[in-house]
Design a protein around this nucleic acid. Structure first.
Length: 582
DNA sequence: CTGGGGAAGGGGCCC
DNA sequence: AGGGCCCCTTCCCCA
């Protein structure tokens, strides 16, 4: 006895669940696109995936081998057993790219299918395995190049890319022809750590090639407790188990490189619905990624094997207001100095855009302090994700539109457009000038001009009248600092443009360190472990704070009632209770 | 149900 | 770049 359609139905269901992000428990990062999927399905389809998903919830694929467009097809294939053909998808180049990807991902059936197709169409035979230099070596080259690229400057010039306005994805054919840095200045899909046995706990540092890895080591801190680093990353510590770890960085870094900061490209929405869960009224309840049972946060009981909660929630928490598109959102890879950026959904410019009408454009805004962090409010008006990342989104086929017919959304200002052309036309209306709105009385310099910025302090420099210890005064808010560097750092907080974007969610930061720290929460990196209970933290300070739970120390005492607290912040909120009438 | 406290996450920012 | 601290916020528990 056998149900004839059982398998088919099952797959259908799974695919639908994928579309909704339901029970998806892994995120695959391909360049600037994120895809959600089910570990089981991936593991069942390829041993390569199997090894990857075993320990990681965030997988970063080698962009040399697969691009978002191709991966989307691959994923569709995995979930449907069909190669969806569209006009361009039937092209030879597409099959070549697919074959490369399939080989890389060890999807043998798909590879065979592609070979067959290519053969039939007289296409050039493609190797089962790429004959091109291995991803690692190529990436190494990229990294070298990238590492010298200008960081995070709105002025960075991105070469115009061929545009295929209606095609949201990069044209892989062209991609093949162009070198990576021609195509994508900030190839985010690095394979960082070249696994090779090097502890993958360390996302960036080291790597097999001993590369500087572009300077962002998110797992910087090695916990004092032995063997915890690897744990910190994810429940796994034995990357060597992954046969291919060398060519894929999992849970990693992809987006962490400096170069990528120039190109925030990712907007995590789409299948990664949890990112926006709170902004989406329906479905989300189900969208919890795997991991811990809907907790009841187990506080004390937290153990290291606990699902790195933040890996999911880190994404989630900050993006309540971000636009939800149940597809993949492809961030900008290149700046379209000309017409709309090549990769369809893509666009011009980087995150730096801020719309004039951005509610938060609070000129005079001293108080940018709350803008990004807590408010997130930029996304007003239909949750456009506001200024977080100037990414343009498009909807993946088969997914629910969240913007009605206006699937192409200009994130900086939140306007939606029915076509990429219209979006691109609109994008052109954003001018560079918007990026650097000079606040009255303020002196703003671009990142690249930082050297000159030194002069900034000169006029206000060692003040003859100011405090001797803090001679450097901000021209905007009059705060003073000990040294010019600190002053410069401070002045960035007045910029309307934040130079350091998170490459995963597009959120912008004024300081690189803050962004790096933020990235840790995306990746679930918690290098600081409590030796008492195993609970892990992203920051040393938190651990210190936490340790008081065990020691019983309550150093913060309320002068009014004598109440004692382990956390200063709790004392503060307690004091509020005393002071506020209610 | 509500309010207070405990514990924790995140971002800003100064050093 | 990283450490440290501040603030805001959230979640959970409990009275």
């Amino acid at each position: 006895m056998e149900l004839p359609n059982h398998a088919k139905q099952l797959l259908l269901q799974l695919n639908q669940q994928r579309a909704k992000g339901f029970l998806c428990d892994v995120i695959i990062v391909v360049e600037n696109a994120l895809f959600r999927a089910h570990k089981n399905i991936l593991a069942a389809s390829s041993i390569y995936f199997k090894s990857l998903v075993l320990h990681d919830n965030l997988i970063n694929l080698d962009t040399e081998m697969v691009n978002p467009s191709v991966f989307r097809q691959v994923l569709d294939f995995i979930y449907t057993g069909k190669l969806l053909s569209s006009s361009d998808q039937s092209s030879e180049q597409n099959f070549s790219a697919l074959l490369t990807a399939a080989s890389y991902l060890q999807l043998h059936d798909l590879a065979a299918l592609c070979r067959k197709k290519l053969k039939r169409s007289g296409g050039k035979p493609l190797p089962g395995k790429p004959s091109t230099p291995g991803p690692l070596s190529r990436l190494r080259l990229n990294n070298q190049r990238l590492s010298s690229s200008t960081p995070a400057g709105p002025n960075n010039h991105y070469p115009p890319t061929p545009s295929d306005a209606d095609q949201p994805q990069p044209d892989e054919g062209l991609r093949d022809k162009l070198s990576d840095d021609e195509m994508f200045v900030g190839s985010s899909g690095r394979n960082g750590n070249g696994g090779n046995g090097s502890s993958n706990g360390n996302l960036s540092s080291g790597g097999s090639a001993g590369e500087p890895d572009l300077g962002l080591d998110l797992s910087k801190k090695s916990p004092p407790s032995a063997g915890t680093v690897t744990d910190a990353l994810s429940p796994h510590s034995n990357s060597q188990e992954s046969p291919q770890s060398a060519s894929v960085s999992t849970t990693n870094s992809a987006s962490l490189d400096d170069s990528s900061t120039t190109l925030p490209g990712v907007d995590t929405c789409g299948e990664t619905t949890e990112l926006n869960s709170s902004s989406k009224a329906s479905e989300e309840t189900q969208n919890q990624p795997d991991g811990p049972p809907p907790q009841k946060k187990s506080r004390q009981g937290a153990r290291k094997n606990e699902w790195p909660k933040k890996e999911a929630s880190g994404l989630k928490s900050e993006d309540h207001d971000r636009p939800l598109v149940n597809g993949v959102i492809v961030g900008p890879k290149e700046r379209s100095s000309g017409a709309g950026g090549g990769s369809g959904g893509s666009f011009t410019s980087d995150q730096s855009f801020q719309c004039k009408d951005d509610e938060e454009g609070g000129e005079n805004g001293q108080d940018h302090s709350e803008e990004s962090g807590q408010s997130d409010g930029e996304s007003a008006g239909g949750g456009t994700g506001g200024g977080h990342g100037a990414n343009y989104v498009y909807r993946q086929e088969g997914f629910e539109p969240a913007f009605g017919d206006n699937l192409y959304v200009c994130i900086p200002c939140g306007k939606g457009f029915p076509s990429s052309e219209q979006l691109n036309a609109h994008v052109e209306t954003h001018t560079e000038d918007e990026l650097y709105i000079k606040e009255e009385g303020g002196t703003f310099v671009k990142e690249e001009d930082e050297e000159e910025a030194e002069d900034l302090s000169a006029p206000v420099g060692p003040s003859t009248f100011g405090s001797e210890t803090r001679p450097f005064k901000c021209t905007v808010c009059s705060k003073s600092y000990k040294d010019p560097a600190t002053l410069r750092q401070h002045e960035k907080s007045h910029w309307l443009t934040r130079p350091f974007p998170c490459n995963i969610c597009g959120k912008m930061f004024t300081q690189r360190g803050t962004m790096t720290r933020h990235m840790r929460s995306h990746l679930g990196l918690k290098p600081f472990a409590c030796e008492e209970c195993g609970m892990r933290f992203t920051r040393q300070y938190r651990l210190t704070e936490h340790m008081r739970v065990h020691s019983g120390e309550k150093p913060y005492e309320c002068q009014l009632c004598g109440g004692k607290f382990t956390q200063q912040r709790n004392l503060i909120s307690h004091l509020r209770m005393h002071t506020s009438p209610s």
